[in-house]
Amino acid sequence: MSEIQAFFHMGGYAWYVWPSFLITLVVLVANVWLSRIQFRSALLDAKRRVVAQAKKNNP
């Protein structure tokens, strides 16, 4: 068995070790991603408010 195969085999515990790391990756990335999406949408709302205000002031 090559070294790389052995690494992914994890001494027979591959089915427990890799899902753990995968689910961690998913949760961490989702945390970052969701927070950034929410920030962008808050920013977009603020922009729209500015544009609406500008329209109201000089139609």
């Binding site: 920013l43 603020a46 500015v50």
Partner: peptide, 28 residues
Amino acid sequence: YVLLIRMRTGILKRESRASWVAQLPEVN
């Protein structure tokens, strides 16, 4: 990191009517 971004979102939402938000370069 996530806390800082979420805090920025929270501030934007609560202060959305404040003039400083309208003057931010990324908004205006």
